[in-house]
Design a binder for these strands. Structure first.
Lengths: 234, 234
DNA sequence: TGGTGTTCTGGTCAGCTTGACTGTAAGCTG
DNA sequence: CAGCTTACAGTCAAGCTGACCAGAACACCA
């Protein structure tokens, strides 16, 4: 038994934060900020931003607060990921962690705060983290990549207006595979969630692309995934 | 402030349990067991099975234990649903509940234990429950119906062997719409996860159906959802 | 014993989506 | 103005899905 009878279960909230940063290859890559632990246990190791849940703070608010404290940014996307509670995941006490995952806008992430105890690293190649945090980040990456609502995710990484090429780069970075520009255009236009702004981007040494923005959802009714032989209600 | 400074956050584990029970219409319907609260707060109201998390018990084990205590059954499917932690969801203390959802086999559910403080009700028409449990069950229902892994779900409700009609009835009950038998057959056979047992069901006044069983997954590699214009890696 | 009703089971067909591919338009650079 | 690169539009075949049809197989009843 790793602890004494009657010792209470402690509840923590942690956040996995993702941002897209341009890489040498030109293709943007996912990065995530880590904080160095300044107290025992696992002092000195890098870990996810987080802390104990204050009794009067909402779970999501606690996640947003630690995110702001770490990066100085406000999340454009914040969702509960999973609750990790294995008995032995922390050496001393029993700690249950409610983990959130967040996306922050890419251009803002460039000027995010950093310091001796905060460090951004590529999400795919992490150092050894404290506790079970490596597994948590891997799970968050999996969730990001298998998420159905890609539109929301892409929107979180981009600004108000964007070109279809920028939007495609977000998808390619998240999905980790190249997409055909022409087919991507067709699919996105057909989704009906994009609206032309009427503007174009000039200055580049090529044909100037149109700028788009996301339309407000306007409650597209009946957007259900087709599944199996449907049948008229008898 | 609903509580005093320094009062610890308490952690509970609850479980939403689903079983399919035949209804008058012939079509099976989702049922769920509830327990009556025997102490304050909300004494007398019906609520989800659950309890405080013992410091030395895994989260999933706690969910399975309360499930067994309530129904006398072992879950064929058990997965974490969500963690609910609104500050005011419980009148006195700050309670964070890690909620699991479980599926139990239908024919076993018929002989599940019940008593004055345990009651099975149709999942779609619940009475007023304690705390935020009505919303929790609704969320569990939504998750059940939008789950991608239908094969696992159907398997959890059925026995080892089953006919395609039985399998289809599970899908129809969960999805709440009729499916075309011929198209359903085609899709399920094409999935490759069903295996004929060679046996048939006799005795019914119709053509006897074949019996099937689920094949072990055997790691079907590359089972990825198609998404957008793929492109050969350059 | 043979007809009848119901379900099981295999098949066709049109419409839509998807991946692959071709061709034209439009800007900048030298 | 030639040349290059990207933006954008369109075609085509393959596969999947929903709708529908028809024969097969059994129990039941007359």
């Amino acid at each position: 038994m790793p602890q004494h009878h009657g010792a209470p279960v402690r509840l923590a909230v942690s956040t996995v934060i993702f941002a897209l940063r341009p890489a040498h290859s030109g293709q943007p890559v996912l990065w995530t900020p880590l904080v160095r632990r300044t107290r025992e246990p696992q002092r000195g190791l890098w870990a996810l931003p987080g802390g104990w849940l204050p009794p009067n703070e909402e779970l999501e608010a606690a996640a947003a607060r630690t995110l702001r404290a770490t990066t100085g940014l406000a999340p454009k996307y914040l969702e509960q990921l999973y609750t990790f509670g294995e008995v032995d995941r922390s050496p001393d006490a029993r700690v249950v962690s409610v983990v959130y995952w967040a996306l922050v806008q890419s251009d803002e992430a460039a000027r995010a705060t950093a310091g001796p105890n905060v460090r951004w690293v590529p999400a795919d190649t992490l150092p050894r983290l404290a506790f079970d945090h490596n597994a948590i980040v891997e799970y968050a990456l999996w969730r990001l990549r298998t998420k159905v609502e890609y539109a929301e995710i892409a929107h979180a990484f981009l600004g108000e207006t964007f070109t279809l090429a920028e939007l495609r780069e977000v998808y390619e970075a998240v999905l980790q595979r190249r997409l055909d520009p022409a087919n991507f255009r067709r699919t996105m236009i057909a989704s009906g969630r994009l609206a032309e702004t009427g503007e174009r981007v000039a200055g580049a040494p090529h044909r100037p692309p149109k700028l788009y923005r996301y339309e407000t959802p306007t409650e597209t009714a009946g957007a259900r995934e087709p599944f199996m032989g449907e049948r008229p209600a008898s």
